[in-house]
Each structure stands twice: as C-alpha cells, then as structure tokens.
C-alpha cells in the first residue's frame, strides 16, 4: 500500500503541475501573438464604423473587459482569481450571457456523449484485436485490414458518412441537435426518447472511430504476449489453453488502459469535430460557434475546459491502472 500511496502522490503532483502549465499556456499563448486580441476584436466589432472616437470607445471597453491595460503579471493573477471563482468572462457573441453559463450547459452533453462512446469503442476494439491475435488465419486477414482502414477514416468523415446513410438516405435517425428542436428540455418520456434518438449517430461515429485504432494496438500487444515465456510454461504445466488466453488478454489489456490515457488527447480532437457535424449541443459545437463569431472569451474558456477534462481523465486512468496492474506496484518498489 505504501508503494501505491507514493504512486498516487506522484501522479497527483503531476496532474497539478500540468494543470498549472495548461492554465499558463491558455493565458499566455494568445497574448504572445503579434496581433493584439483586443484590437482584432475591436476591428471586427467596429466594422463599418467611421467615427474614430466610437472605435476608440469600443477599444477602451474591451481593454477594460480583458484587463489588457494592466501589467501582464497582474492580468494573470486576475485571470487565475476569476478562474477560481468560476468566472470565465462574458461572451461576445451571446452577450450578455456569462461564458461559464454557456460552457456548463454544453459540458454535460459532451461528457455524456464522448465518455461512453470512447469506453465502448475501447472495449470493442480490444475484444476484436484480441480475437484477431488469437484466431489469426482468415479472421485476422479480413479483420485487420478492415480495422486498419476504419481507423484511418477521419472522425468527421465517419460522422458525415453515418449522417448521410442513416440520417438522410434511410431516415432512421435524426441528423442534427441533441433533441428535437421543438422541445424544451425536461424529464418527460418523449424528451428522453428524442435525446436517445439524437444520440445514436454521434455515438456510433465515435465508437467506430475508436474501435479500429484500439483493435490494431491490442492485436500486436496480444501477439507479443502470446509469445511470452509464461504462456509456454503454463502450457507445459497442463493448464488449458482457454485459461492461458485469459492471462494473455488481461496482460495485454492492462497497458491498453495507459494507451487510452495517452491517446485520449488525440481522440478528443476528432470527437469534438464529429460533434460539429451533428450540431450536437456540446463543447465542440460551442467552440465552432465561438470561432465563427470570433467570440474570444468563449474560445479561450472552451479550450481550457477541454484541457482540464483531458488532464482529469488521464489522471483518473493512471490511478485506476496503478490499482489493477501489479507491475506498476512492483516498479514503485524499485524506486
């Protein structure tokens, strides 16, 4: 247990450090750029205005809003202070809504869509990969190229194809939104039904995308494990093949947890774009709307929230992994 506490402590420290760096980057990156965000925004807001003093007025207002008239260190502490209060500023495009309001109404949709989809895709992919490694021969010959091809279809491509086939051509599922546009969110049965029917296509497009990559990874991992010495040894002690395959799957699957933790950052990018294709009311669509409307505070907040979510998931996966794989525990004893 001592080893585990050390592991946990290390991971927690790491989580805090990356979080701090992420916040700093989120603050610094836009300010490092040659174009001053305030003047860029003012330029957009003041389009068509001829009165110089009015433009100046707008500039002043946003300068105060951003606090860019203060020294950069002070700006940073104001930024962090506001962050702790949950204040992410005011949206430009949906003025006077608070950014935190917009984000909190979107974040649930994203979590409920992406988390189950990624987990299901991960499980199915691992299962297929393990089967391919174990059965080999024909199954492997067909499945692997297909998985490899599928894993190379970009997430938005899969989303569009599913949308066109099931939504437009066969009209099995609705193609846009998180629920029917004429409904008001509530806990009634018709509303839940509508949510589920809108859920299918985005869900399956993310699942299909994650299956391919996971299956390919799991297959090579399983082949590697099947050739391990313990497999041979267990066989020569008379243990049944089926039981040994159980050992192999477990051992191959555990590192896949870390694999998931490491790839989640990449996967989320594709999954967010899939949301845009389906106009799903999550963070991806929020980000898209923010980019199109040049809503600077909203973009900044969305990217920050997505980063925090990814860091949190990575952290949790690391912790779970430490619990379930004794190899990690042993490695801690060595340190």
């Amino acid at each position: 247990m001592k080893g585990y506490r050390k592991y946990f402590g290390k991971k927690l420290l790491w989580f805090v450090i990356t979080l701090v760096v992420a916040v700093i980057l989120n603050f610094v990156l836009p300010r490092l750029m040659p174009a001053d965000p305030v003047s860029a925004i003012t330029g957009k807001m003041a389009q068509g205005m001829t009165d110089a003093s009015a433009v100046q007025e707008i500039y002043k207002r946003y300068e105060a809003e951003f606090g860019t008239n203060k020294p950069i260190v002070e700006q940073f502490f104001i930024f962090v202070g506001n962050l702790f209060k949950g204040d992410l500023g005011t949206s430009f495009s949906q003025y006077p809504r608070k950014v935190s309001d917009i984000i909190s109404s979107a974040i649930g949709w994203t979590i409920c869509l992406q988390l189950p989809a990624i987990i299901v895709g991960w499980l199915l992919g691992n299962l297929l990969g393990a089967l391919a490694a174990y059965i080999r021969k024909g199954f492997d010959k067909v499945l692997m190229p297909v998985s490899l091809f599928l894993s190379n279809v970009p997430a938005f491509g899969m989303a569009v194809i599913l949308l066109v086939l099931f939504g437009v051509t066969w009209k099995i599922a609705p193609i846009a939104g998180g629920y029917a546009y004429d409904m008001i969110p509530n806990f009634s049965w018709p509303f839940i039904k509508s949510v589920i029917s809108h859920y299918q296509l985005p869900f399956f497009s993310i699942v299909l995308i994650s299956i391919g990559g996971q299956a390919v990874g799991m297959r090579s991992m399983s082949i590697y494990e099947l050739n391990a010495d313990y497999v041979k040894y267990a066989r020569f002690l008379g243990i049944k093949d089926r039981k040994i395959v159980g050992y192999v799957f477990r051992n191959a699957m555990l590192p896949q947890v870390t694999g998931l933790a490491l790839s989640i950052g990449t996967m989320i990018g594709g999954a967010l774009v899939a949301e845009i294709i389906f106009s799903y009311p999550g963070l991806g669509s929020t980000m898209y709307a923010a980019v199109t409307a040049a809503d600077y505070p909203l973009i900044s907040a969305t990217t920050l929230i997505i980063t925090i979510m990814v860091l949190l998931v990575t952290f949790l996966l690391d912790i779970i992994y430490g619990f379930i794989d004794p190899r990690v525990k042993a490695a801690q004893f060595d340190v």
Binding site: T18, M287, I299
Partner: peptide
Amino acid sequence: NIFTVIPGFVLLILISYS
C-alpha cells in the same frame, strides 16, 4: 511529458486563432 498530456489539438486551436 507536459506536452504529451495537454492535448495538442487544443494548443493548435489556441495558436491558430491567435
């Protein structure tokens, strides 16, 4: 390690927008 866990896509968006 820091840049491995911070999603590159997010950085990409921030930089591109800026």
